[in-house]
Design a protein around this nucleic acid. Structure first.
Lengths: 190, 190
DNA sequence: TGTACATCAGTGAACGCGCGTTCACTGATGTAC
DNA sequence: TGTACATCAGTGAACGCGCGTTCACTGATGTAC
């Protein structure tokens, strides 16, 4: 996707390491990640990944930054709050490794400027959409985020496995918000 | 709390190991947990913890089971959905280590009967409370759980640090639900 | 009250493993002239 | 077009560390008689 570097000895090693990392994270979680293991997967010597990312935190910061870009792309041009929620869930399903890393600040370089900028760009999308729905923008922001994030987290961590029984997760989330998540000013009855 | 065993050589080692584990998990996360590290903290030889818990999964399953008991206790006798949400958040803050472990099934023994029973007891509390609020009980259950779980998760993982600015988290959550989380049949306007 | 024995919590040495990090190196690419 | 040199991606041996697991053991507690 964002390959900026031509192939040297082994093609695009940074991308190869990132891809291997995303695979490990998606299947075994961020805790299972080791630079040596990634080098093995990418077919290079164990010290090679450090050339590009420094350490684990550097690698994960790159993943989180990329994740915010992918989330913004998944948002598209939608300004509708409910759609944004559905797309948040869609992003978590499509990019589970990015999702798992983005919200674990203790794994990241906390002050990385690219990360902070990408995060702010994404957040502002939600802030704009929530403006028309809540009396207090900060409260509305946290409410919408909590709802979508809670559902996506529980889904990815297999806590909804017995509850969805075959239902499409995006549609289930849409039903959730339809039932209980209404614009302020709406007077919906059951 | 649930000490069932009198002191042998070193007092109540199972409890001492659990306490040490809760401390490590709360401050460094479940990934930082090692049986050798816990033995060191508890002041016993490195092989001692395995006597009581077998392995990491056994230890974490014990913590998760205890966690469901503590969550049920935090729920008290409340049948009010909004209060249950607030208490879910309260539990996450009071027992962050338990909370982090309970919803990570890949760290646990999946079929442990005590764990499954404790979990079911807790879930049924929420199921009863949600019955009056949603048209579809399963949808209402997931909606309420997503909201409370999302807020608690984001809070504990320090993703709300810049957004709450000093506000009490329980009160913030109450505001969230007041704004956007209404009983079906209620016709609240903004 | 006293002895013999079973039980079981906890010890400590030993093992093999994968990890991050260091460091001198190799070899391909890119640039100056 | 050709040579010399700088740069930098990637190598591979070596290091020390903490881990889980095994296993023969010690020593305190509890019970049978």
């Amino acid at each position: 996707m964002t390959a900026e570097r031509a192939a040297y000895h082994h093609g695009d090693l940074p991308r190869a390491v990132l891809t291997a990392a995303l695979d490990v994270i998606a299947t075994e979680g961020p805790a299972a990640l080791s630079l040596r293991g990634l080098a093995r997967r990418a077919g290079v010597s164990h010290a090679a990944p450090a050339h590009h990312f420094g350490d684990r935190a550097g690698l994960l910061t790159a993943i989180a930054t990329e994740g915010y870009g992918l989330l913004s792309a998944t948002f598209g041009e939608t300004r509708n709050l409910r759609d944004l929620g559905v797309r948040y869930v869609r992003f978590a399903i499509a990019h589970p490794a990015h999702f798992q890393v983005m919200f674990r600040p203790e794994l990241l370089r906390p002050d990385d400027p690219e990360l902070l900028a990408a995060r702010e760009r994404t957040r502002s999308r939600l802030r704009v959409a929530v403006a028309g729905y809540a009396d207090d923008p900060a409260v509305g922001f946290m409410a919408a985020w909590s709802m979508a994030h809670g559902f996506a987290s529980l889904l990815l961590s297999h806590n909804l496995d017995g509850l969805l029984d075959g239902q499409d997760p995006e549609e289930a989330f849409r039903a959730l918000t339809g039932d209980m998540f209404r614009p302020a000013g709406d007077s919906a009855t059951g």
